[in-house]
């Protein structure tokens, strides 16, 4: 995409006709190609994935806290949440939440008198639905990580006279985070790919844009191959980044071992 952009900038000042990009012309920047639309789609994909991932992490922390809580009600609620989300297809949940969140959220906000009229935009609805699904998976990752923190740590904190809150934030949480990191890295890869499902409701992220481009140019294969490569590059790059973070955070343990 970057090269196409360069070509055009080089070609225009000379007043010469736009360079012929051959079979890549579908990716040209501007009116003639889909380069800028696809780039915008890719940015939307990244921002939707990012927001849903963050929402998922928050829901996951709450869910994991509920699962290890003393309240039976909280435990049951968290169990239902994770079980249902893992048993029902993401596409179905996303359709359900996407369609209902737009109307339900609006009713709540108008009903409470916060605003006269409120339109939930597609971006928020997309993040809500993807984040809800992510939250269930994050819950499991965090729960596993919490139970992986050695029992002795909890006992040691109690022996030091730390309060429940201090035990959680100073002792359990940091160790839990390190153990959760591999799982959290996987979840980012999952949400990156799952964000493609939002294209089904007509939200113009990367895949939807490619479908539009393919339909308009009668060249589906080219555009779907392009986005497949884009997703692959994003996945491989993020996997590398998580690898580096994991190595950085685990450096103390390696030094000791």
């Amino acid at each position: 995409m970057a090269t196409c952009r360069l070509d055009r900038h080089v070609a225009l000042p000379n007043g010469s006709p736009q360079m012929d990009l051959g079979w890549l012309s579908g990716l040209a920047y501007g009116d003639t190609g889909w380069g800028d639309e696809l780039l915008r789609g890719a940015l939307l994909t990244l921002s939707i994935s990012g927001c849903s991932y963050l929402l998922g992490l928050i829901l996951g922390l709450i869910g994991a806290a509920a699962k290890s809580s003393r309240s039976r009600f909280a435990r049951t609620l968290a169990w239902f949440y994770t079980t249902i989300v893992r048993a029902v297809p993401e596409l179905l949940l996303i359709l359900l939440i996407y369609y209902t969140s737009t109307s339900a959220l609006r009713q709540v906000i108008v009903g409470l008198g916060i605003a006269q009229d409120f339109e939930v935009n597609g971006f928020v609805a997309a993040c809500l639905s993807l984040g809800f699904v992510q939250g269930a998976y994050s819950t499991e990752v965090f729960r596993g990580a919490i139970s992986a923190v050695a029992r002795g740590q909890r006992e040691a904190a109690a022996a030091l006279g730390l309060s429940r809150r201090h035990t959680w934030w100073l002792v359990i949480f940091p160790q839990m985070l390190q153990r959760a990191l591999p799982g959290l890295g996987n979840l980012w890869l999952v949400v990156l790919k799952e964000s493609a499902l939002i294209s089904v409701v007509g939200f113009s992220e990367l895949l939807f844009t490619a479908k539009m481009a393919g339909g308009a140019s009668h060249n589906y294969l080219f555009f779907f191959l392009t986005v497949a490569i884009a997703y692959l590059v994003l996945s491989v790059a993020s996997a590398r980044i998580f690898e580096v973070i994991e190595r950085h955070i685990g450096r103390h343990e390696r030094a000791q071992g």
Partner: peptide, 8 residues
């Protein structure tokens, strides 16, 4: 594994 099922 690196691309969405929907894209495939």
């Amino acid at each position: 594994r690196g691309t969405p099922v929907l894209v495939q």
